[in-house]
């Protein structure tokens, strides 16, 4: 059995348990296979998007978050205890403050705000998008606005960095009923969206 040949089957989860185990051992020694597998994994995962299925029931989200919180409550008190012990062991009050500050920073993200998207149209049909509540895009990334006419491909319609209320004059004239979406993309923008939209509205 040539193990190099199993990369596609592994990416599709189409190997029996012992074949998969043999391939995984091979993987730890074969850089070429690791690279090829990373590519084929992305492609295999894209097949998930081609499915047609009903929306998941809302209770599924709640059940997952509840189970996750229950698991965390078994772990976090232990960590907090350790921090307290360490805080007491350190004589300096300043050092204790640093530890407390870290805990707060980890448990409370600083981006507690609403994202809002407003669309206004000029007399010429051109549209202006106003976005508030988005932090500055991560380094090397940009926000990209899209106009998605019904049943057609998304049209790249402008880039903005976020961080303060942004006003984007959309390229072209958005069709009535088109979806306006914003995604995070590589700096410089892309021709077709590669990530899920963070906010949408309708023209």
């Amino acid at each position: 059995m040539d193990l190099h040949d199993l990369t596609a089957a592994y990416a599709l989860d189409a190997l029996d348990a012992d074949e998969a185990e043999a391939y995984e051992q091979h993987l730890s020694q074969c850089e070429d296979c690791r690279e090829q597998l990373a590519e084929l994994n992305d492609t295999a995962a894209s097949l998930a998007f081609a499915t047609v299925a009903p929306a998941p029931p809302p209770r599924l989200r709640a059940a997952i978050l509840e189970a996750a919180a229950a698991e965390r409550s078994n772990v976090v008190p232990f960590l907090r205890r350790r921090w307290v012990v360490r805080g007491l062991a350190v004589a300096s009050a300043a050092a204790a403050c640093v530890v407390v500050g870290l805990a707060v920073a980890l448990s409370r993200p600083s981006h507690q705000h609403f994202v809002s998207l407003g669309l206004t149209r000029g007399a010429n049909g051109k549209a202006t998008l106003t976005i508030t509540g988005l932090d500055t895009a991560p380094q090397g990334k940009t926000y990209e606005a899209w106009v998605i006419p019904k049943g057609r491909a998304p049209r790249p319609s402008g880039l903005f960095p976020g961080g303060k209320p942004a006003v984007v004059h959309l390229h072209g004239v958005p069709e009535n009923g088109a979806v306006i979406a914003v995604t995070v993309e590589q700096a410089g923008g892309v021709r077709a969206p590669t990530t899920a939209p963070i906010v949408t509205t309708r023209a």
């Binding site: 097949l47 998930a48 998007f49 499915t51 047609v52 299925a53 009903p54 929306a55 998941p56 599924l60 989200r61 997952i64 978050l65 899920a196």
Partner: peptide
Amino acid sequence: LYDRYGRAAYGLAYR
């Protein structure tokens, strides 16, 4: 993450 991929995930599992 669930809000972004939960629906695709469920669609896949359902299929």
